[in-house]
Simulated assay, not measured.
Amino acid sequence: MNDQQKQFVLAFMAYAAQRDLPLEKLCRLSGIDLQALTNGGDLEIGPKQFNDLWLNACHLSNDALFGLHLGESLQLAALGIVGEIIKSSTTVGQGVKHVVALTPLITNLFGMTVELDTQTFTLRLHPDENRRAASPFAFEQMISFFLVFAVHELDGLILARIRPEHITMPFTDAAAPELERVLRCVPTHSEDDYAISFDRKYWDMPILTANYALQESLLQKVGTAASGKAGKDSWQEKVQQYLLKNAYLGIVSLEEMAANFNVSPRSLQRKLKDEQVTYQELADDVRKSLALHYLESGEYYVKEISYMLGYNELSAFSRAFKRWTGVTPAGYQKNFE
């Protein structure tokens, strides 16, 4: 495996652990040496092993859409390529072209091209039929992963929730509602077309996360601080980490959070209550922590921070910050000028 492929498998394992899957059993059933993988050993994962990894993850999690939910939970940072995209791109279009060029580093099950017309730009996946035949289950899951990953990462490039114009892919009737929720678009069924289209207006938009190094260091700092407040395997920790990674899209709803972990909202509420915390308390704590660190850095205007934390109106952010700290964001930031 190359570095990006290994990074992907490690991110896969991290998400599986977050979903409480038994990693040793998952790897044993898939014919993968977990110790060699986690210790940085020289490990090759063949097509059958990769296919079995997906198959067993879906079985152990009782989640036929494991790939979809994996894509929803990850960022490009998890694949080790975000730096290349941010450093070499100033617009969404340039970033998309770099993602397309880097796709072979992550998977050889399909290639990706980008097509532009006057109204949309389309990311189209082109199966490698021989590799697809060798790993059919992995192929289906990776398709779902890449489609939702495209939506999620375009969100991150411009700090807004983007709704695709059109999606074509094969799917079952049972999967349709969850695909619509995660992909934010009613998919069109097709047995041999895998594509997702976005409004052309996004193509020339500037990337708003160009100061990636600072943002990543802040997230790591806040993440470390938050991790110290709860047990490593607690539901509080799982929810906090998900909120931190996706804070630039605003705080997701309880229903969305529960769906990501394949549990009901009522069950998630009960699990958090057992740990003497509520979902709203965790959401406010994450937003407060990030707001404080962004303001202290001195690298962002208050309005930028407001948008980065998912507030549509600066006034709403100011009210929330004053409720948390007793002072306005601008007043707090003056202490660090």
Rank of each mutant, 00 (worst) to 15 (best):
L183N: 12
K322Q: 15
C185K: 10
D52M: 05
W54C: 08
P170F: 06
P104N: 04
S73Q: 07
P329M: 00
Y242W: 13
Y248H: 03
A230R: 06
L214D: 05
P136D: 04
Y212N: 02
L244H: 05
L53E: 10
K25D: 14
A330L: 03
F121W: 05
D52W: 03
D155C: 11
L10F: 11
T103L: 09
L123M: 07
R287G: 07
F317S: 02
S297M: 05
Q119K: 01
E304I: 07
E281D: 13
D274K: 11
G71E: 03
L37H: 10
T113N: 14
T122Y: 03
N2W: 14
D193P: 08
F12T: 14
G67L: 01
D155W: 00
R19D: 15
T122K: 02
A175W: 09
A330C: 02
L290V: 06
I251F: 14
N2Y: 11
T328W: 00
G41H: 08
K221Y: 09
L157N: 09
T90C: 03
T107Q: 12
L21Q: 05
L123E: 09
M308Q: 10
E115M: 09
N62R: 08
D3Y: 09
T278E: 07
V286T: 14
R319T: 09
T120C: 11
S306N: 12
V82Q: 05
I196N: 04
N130F: 03
G83I: 05
L147C: 07
Q75D: 15
G93K: 01
F139Y: 14
V182I: 10
Q141H: 02
S306E: 12
A174I: 07
E296K: 01
E24G: 12
T328H: 00
K238Q: 13
S217I: 10
P206K: 06
D173N: 07
S135H: 06
A258T: 03
W203F: 08
A14P: 00
Q276I: 01
Y242L: 14
Q241I: 03
A133P: 03
C58F: 00
E299D: 14
Y279C: 12
N211F: 01
F139G: 12
K201N: 10
Y242H: 14
S190P: 12
T224M: 08
